[in-house]
């Protein structure tokens, strides 16, 4: 997986879309820019497998420097896997936010949710404006 191949939400989450047995499967994480901005993550709460997530809605939470922030889903889908190693090893997000730092995998239930996402180049431009 390369970050150049990902789609990005304005709220700094990424999605990598693959076709698996006819289903669209999204791997979801947060961008290196978001990890850098959040700084010193200490806690993370993940969604439950089987839960439905909705584009733009909260799917998890993180705490850094006494600030609790929401994580927003970039897609509509059903959670089929979560990275259970992550909450106990949040340094992975700093080391490899686009690989080992993935947060969840979800079966996309509405393709139209993908059309709201930006490509890598557009997202990088947004980070330049936000930073």
């Amino acid at each position: 997986m390369k970050p150049e191949e990902f789609l990005y939400a304005e709220s700094h989450e990424w999605a990598f879309i693959e076709e698996v047995n006819g289903d669209k499967i999204a791997t979801v994480g947060i961008s290196a820019f978001a990890v850098e901005q959040l700084t010193d993550l200490v806690f993370m709460e993940l969604p439950e497998i089987g839960s439905m997530i909705e584009s733009g809605s909260e799917f998890g939470e993180v705490e850094s420097v006494k600030a609790v922030s929401s994580l927003y889903s970039p897609i509509d889908g059903e959670v089929i896997q979560v990275n259970t190693d992550l909450p106990d090893s949040l340094e992975i997000l700093n080391e490899d936010p686009y690989g080992a730092g993935w947060i969840l995998k979800a079966k996309v239930t509405d393709d139209s949710s993908l059309s709201k996402l930006a490509d890598y180049t557009t997202y990088q431009k947004q980070c330049g404006e936000d930073g």
Binding site: H12, V65, K66
Partner: peptide, 28 residues
């Protein structure tokens, strides 16, 4: 709703400041 450790609120002055964010989401 916020992070950090436990506080015993008794003889204190507590404040909150709510500010619209310049951007949304996980980052800035």
């Amino acid at each position: 709703n916020s992070g950090g450790g436990a506080i015993l609120h008794d003889d204190e002055l507590t404040y909150s400041l709510s500010v619209p964010a310049t951007t949304s989401g996980s980052g800035t």
